[in-house]
């Protein structure tokens, strides 16, 4: 049977469901780009504007025009992408909405691809419109002669790349979680997971004298550092790992598509939809609880191996009880 990847009805549904977020992203984009420049180069006092022009003429440093590389704009867009993924997958698991979606005459992978494409279209549209408007604002001002459009285009591409990568990550999490709350929680936790493990493992190695106190975990440039979602968004300096993030995002996109295609909707409302992933989730949770409790016990109760081991043991038990209770619960859908 002939299958099309572009299904108008699915695009309409996704747009109708998430259009509020598109407009919110547009507003956020305007206030974090063009509006800031309008205040500086249109509405500021003539002395300030003249000062700016003189500074630019003297130093030729036009980079500040990008407003610290549009950092705030990018963060707002990443937040928008995160909310989009929650709305598209987590929220749809409530109120029989995913049942309605799966009853439609389209393959599930096409539904997932459409969700992704609609969000990518939003991100591209918002970045393009915001950056174009910002360029226009600057070009029409007295600093117009110093605006290099190519810098803005380059930055725009970077923002699109980062936002799409972060969105793909959170959408992937939604492909196997049964509630929007866990999708949100796991997405947020994954921002801190790398730092958490680095800190906890370093302490563990130190306490058990496996490495001397002065030796740090050498993770710079490794897979684990690159795999860190925080690094994807907040990467500083040059050498952004485009190839790595691109490949990982592509793999996450494919994995999300496969998992979504195999979603068992009867498990909606549970923490995790797949029994095997649920087991991994339990192991991960218990491990984190053990490391954290061991560390806490070492720092506050007894600064020795025994203190650490006792804390880790207790953390394992409490962590297991908590996660088993949570995984047995079912949120009403």
């Amino acid at each position: 049977m002939q299958r099309s990847i572009f299904v108008r009805a699915l695009w309409w549904k996704e747009y109708r469901q998430t259009r509020v977020l598109l407009w919110l992203m547009m507003i956020a984009g305007f206030f974090s780009t063009a509006y800031l420049h309008m205040r500086e180069v249109w509405f500021a006092s003539p002395q300030v504007i003249v000062g700016l022009v003189e500074y630019l003429a003297k130093t030729q440093e036009t980079n500040w025009l990008l407003h610290r590389n549009y950092g705030g704009f990018m963060l707002l867009l990443v937040l928008g992408g995160f909310l989009l993924s929650l709305w598209q997958l987590g929220h749809e698991r409530r109120n029989q909405m995913s049942e309605q979606t799966f009853a439609l005459p389209y393959p599930r992978w096409v539904i997932y691809v459409t969700k992704w494409l609609v969000s990518v279209a939003y991100i591209v549209f918002v970045v393009t419109a915001s950056v174009a408007l910002d360029i226009l604002v600057l070009k029409l001002s007295q600093v117009g002669a110093y605006v290099h459009v190519i810098d803005f285009i380059g930055r725009g591409f970077h923002i699109i790349f980062v936002t799409v990568a972060a969105y793909t990550f959170t959408l992937f999490i939604g492909s196997f979680t049964g509630t929007w709350t866990l999708q949100a929680a796991l997405s947020i936790i994954s921002l801190f997971l790398y730092e958490f493990f680095t800190l906890m493992l370093q302490q563990l190695l130190y306490i058990f004298m496996i490495t001397p106190i002065y030796m740090e975990l050498r993770l710079r440039g490794t897979f684990w550092e690159k795999f860190n979602l925080t690094n994807w968004v907040f990467h500083e300096g040059g050498n952004y790992p485009y190839a790595f993030v691109g490949v990982v995002s592509l793999l996450l996109f494919i994995a999300g598509m496969v998992l979504y295609s195999r979603n068992s909707l009867e498990n909606n409302g549970k923490l995790v939809l797949f029994p095997i992933i649920e087991k991994l989730f339990i192991v991960g949770f218990v491990l984190c609880a053990a490391l954290f409790s061991g560390n806490l016990s070492y720092d506050t109760l007894y600064p020795g191996r025994l203190g650490y081991a006792a804390g880790a043991g207790l953390g394992t038990i409490i962590g297991y009880i908590i996660i088993r209770t949570l995984t047995r619960m079912r949120v009403r859908t």
Partner: peptide, 22 residues
């Protein structure tokens, strides 16, 4: 295996909850 067949198989649930926003 062939979800396209569902153009001819329609399910009407006991309440149109999923359509309530429209």
């Amino acid at each position: 295996k062939y979800p396209e067949l569902k153009r001819d198989v329609v399910f009407v649930p006991d309440a149109p909850v999923a359509l309530e926003a429209y």
